[in-house]
Amino acid sequence: MLIIPCPHCGPRPELEFRYGGQAHIARPVDPSPLSDEEWASFLYSRDNERGIHAERWRHIHGCARFFNVVRDTTTDQILASYKTGEFRPEAV
């Protein structure tokens, strides 16, 4: 089980959280001029990174807030966690 560091509450067991998928995918501000390909890409295409991956988690059984984690998907080691709205840390 992962121990996930919530930036608001500290390290907690994975069971307190829900996974939210790849982080930093911004919803297009004005979807109407997008092509079907661009819209499908926003909705469904993912990097599915084998390596360093920035992802969202939500502390549903705690503070209930979304935040971001950087994790190595080849080891499951968590390298950083940071609040929603902050930039992904440079070093990882």
Partner: peptide, 13 residues
């Protein structure tokens, strides 16, 4: 598991 991974193991829970 709940999260994407390439580790070929998975959580014991």
């Amino acid at each position: 598991d709940a999260y994407t991974s390439y580790t070929q193991r998975g959580g014991l829970h």
